[in-house]
Every structure is written in structure tokens, then in C-alpha cells.
Design a protein around this nucleic acid. Structure first.
Lengths: 210, 210
DNA sequence: AAACCTGTGTAACCCTTGTTACTGTAAAAC
DNA sequence: GTTTTACAGTAACAAGGGTTACACAGGTTT
């Protein structure tokens, strides 16, 4: 674990902190599609993403869903952070977008490290900063863009996070992520294909413009 | 200033920190409607809200606006916080919703206090936490609610923040805040009035259900 | 091979929201 | 008092997106 830890976080954390993380953290593997945290769960561990990608979803009382953003290597879940420090339940659902490797940290250490390590403090602040920006971006997207633009952005983001122009996804799944209906997605995808921006296959989509 | 400072933040900050804030902070009065921060501004000071209310707006490249949330006494602008620590430009616009009293803190102190005072650290973390929650709430609103529901929520929020059932606002102003058109707002307001939820007057609206 | 399931394409229709245009009216400016 | 200006009401229409319904195509199961 130490090696991977250093690769992903060595430039950020001082050596002593890396040691500590290495000794108290638990390496964990999550298969693509597996759920990591559910809404309402009490958060007992804080994840550091080593490899892979996680998608963060929001859901309202009626069960309507919406993709908030993706997390990548070097990210942590500020939402979880927030929950840890506040001892509250999770407001979001986290699902592995790809096979994912992460280090789980006991939340007791959070407080301690915050006092002890400047690099940890900076990391936490930076995480919050990045997350707020990401949330602003999400708001911009749903507030100011039409569904066809949102769809194209979604496909591009998803291609990027999965490091492949061909993304494996069904129209129904996209509809869930964008909080709309399958018919609408099929309709808009066909339009995008006619515009030469994507190519449709069964169960997958090739994105031509990245 | 000391007295007001203690009233608003005495329960949170240790005495020594209150002293420091008192000595380096500059008390500032902002009239209702005045702009505090514009998008793209470099943030040189961090505000602590003592009294009044501030509305935080987002704007996209086409000039389309959207109200994100209100700040109240005891709040600070996490977005500004974020900018201070990251030395980046403001992503949002802040406008005094009512006559507002706030303490401006030089950002150099942020780093120092973060190391020195646990109460300050906790305050910063708590601010981020509250702000993320507020952003989630904003996302829920625009993603999952129809315009009539959003409008009613807007009126209720605005009544609450201004501590009055009668709010002084034009249909056009509401349209800007909710990123829609005046005609749509007039239409929906009339419907809400017929439902007995509000009473319309020129330049003001009385909210019956709080 | 037949039956079945899942994913996709498409038409027809409806509701919500956005747009344009015009009217009236209160308040402010002259 | 008359003229302007800002605000509000409303109709008519357009567009985006949600809904329902049905057809069909690949795979999978039996």
C-alpha cells in the first residue's frame, strides 16, 4: 500500500503523515458498480481515492436521482469529510464508476491530524474548495444548459473519467443520471449521432468530440 | 464593535480570538441592495456577518443569473473562504439583501488562526459543511422542483431572511433570481394568489403560508 | 427453434415554461 | 395636470421535455 499511497499523495503529505496513513488506513478494493455509501448511512470512515473513479449521486424523497460529480485519484469525498466532522448522516450515495482502490481512514484521526499536520489541513481545505467548485459547476449545468448540452457534457465527462472514448452505458442509465426519461435520452442521442458527435451501439456509445 | 462581535460569535470563538478579531477586523456597514463582491474580483478580505443578510448570486457567461442562497448573522461566505485560501477570483456575486453589518478580516490572518485556534478551525470546517448542505439544497430545488414550487420556496425563504411576511420585490426581480422570465413569474404569482397562499400588491407580496 | 428479456427507435400527445405583444395602472418626473 | 416610466395582467403561440404506447432487434434461456 505504501508505494501507491506515495504515488497518489506523496507530493501533498509530509512523510510522517504518509507513515501514519499507512499504519492506520485500510486498503480496500471496490468493483465497478458497487455501492460505497448510501444516503442516510452514518459515516465511520473517510476514503482517500488511490485509483479508479467514484460517482456521487443525489436522491430526493420521491426517489428521483441526479448525478452530482465524479471523484478521481487524489480526491476525497468532501461530503463525507463534512459528515465525519459534523457526525451527521450521508446526504449522498457513492458508487464505484470503475474498479476502485481506496484507503479508508478512521474518522477519529481527522481531528488529530487537523491539529498536527499542516499538509492535512491544507488538503482538507483544498478538498472543500474543489468540491464547492464542482458543485457550482453542477448548478451551472442544470440551471443554464438544455438537456442536449447536458447530455453531451455527461458523455464527455464520463469518457474522460473512464479514460475511453467508448463508454458502456444504456440509455436508461443515462436517464437516471441526468434525472430525465429514457425516451428523451434516446431522442437526443439520435440527434447527436446525426450531428456526427457520437456513434451509437447497443449498450455503448462512442464519443467523437472530447 | 466588541459587544456585537461577542453577541454573534462569543459562543463559538475563544476570548483570545475574539480579541484578535476585534483588533484586526474592520467593521463595515452595507446598505440594502449594495454590492459586496462581484464575480471575478480578487478577494482580499473575509467577511463575518454580524447583522443583516446577504444574497449570493451565480451568473453564467451569457449574463443569466441565479440566486444560490442567503447568508445570515453568524455565517461567513465559504465561497470567499475558499477563494482566500486558494488565492482565486470570486465565483459569485454578493449583494446585501438588507442593511448589513459585517467585520472584514485580512486574509493573512486566516492561515495563522487556522494553526493557532481550534475554535477557528472548527468554525471554518463548520462553515464549509453548512455551505455544502446549502448548495445541495439549491441543487435539489432546481433539479427536482417545478417553477411554482421554487417560487413559493423563494418567497418563504425571502420572508424569513427579511423577518417579514411582506416582501418588497418586483416580479422582474424574482424572475432574475429564479432565472426565468417576468411573464412566467406574474402568471404563477397570480395562481398562488388565487390559491390563497399570497397576496399581491404593487412592488410587494404578502406571504400567507410561512 | 421458440420463448423471453432487455435495450433501442419512434410517433403522438400533453404539460410546463419561455416568448412576444399589447393593455392598463400606479407612481414619479416634468 | 400632463407626460413618462416602471410595474403588472393577460392572451396567444412556440419550444423543450415528459409520457404513453408500440415495434423491433440482439441476446439469453428454455
Amino acid at each position: 500500500m505504501l508505494q501507491e499511497l506515495k504515488e497518489a499523495y506523496g507530493f501533498i503529505f509530509e512523510d510522517e503523515l504518509i507513515e501514519e496513513i499507512n499504519s492506520v488506513g485500510k486498503l480496500q478494493f471496490i468493483g465497478a458498480g458497487e455501492k460505497i455509501i448510501e444516503i442516510g448511512d452514518y459515516v465511520k470512515m473517510m476514503p482517500l481515492l488511490i485509483e479508479g473513479a467514484i460517482k456521487i449521486m443525489r436522491e430526493d424523497k420521491d426517489g428521483d436521482e441526479l448525478l452530482l460529480y465524479f471523484l478521481e485519484r487524489g480526491d476525497t469525498c468532501a461530503m463525507t469529510l463534512s459528515c465525519c466532522l459534523g457526525q451527521t448522516k450521508s446526504e449522498i450515495r457513492a458508487i464505484a464508476e470503475r474498479d476502485t482502490k481506496l484507503i479508508m481512514l478512521p474518522i477519529e484521526k481527522m481531528e488529530e491530524w487537523t491539529t498536527k499536520y499542516k499538509s492535512w489541513r491544507d488538503f482538507v481545505f483544498e478538498s472543500y474548495h474543489v468540491r464547492l467548485s464542482e458543485m457550482l459547476d453542477t448548478i451551472d449545468t442544470i440551471a443554464f444548459m438544455n438537456m442536449d448540452q447536458r447530455l453531451m457534457k455527461y458523455l464527455q465527462d464520463k469518457a474522460k473519467i473512464n479514460q475511453s472514448e467508448v463508454i458502456a452505458v444504456t440509455h436508461q442509465q443515462i436517464a437516471y443520471d441526468l434525472h430525465t426519461s429514457r425516451v428523451v435520452i434516446s431522442r437526443l442521442l439520435k440527434k447527436l449521432e446525426l450531428d456526427g458527435k457520437i456513434k451509437l451501439q447497443r449498450n455503448s456509445i462512442e464519443v467523437m468530440e472530447l
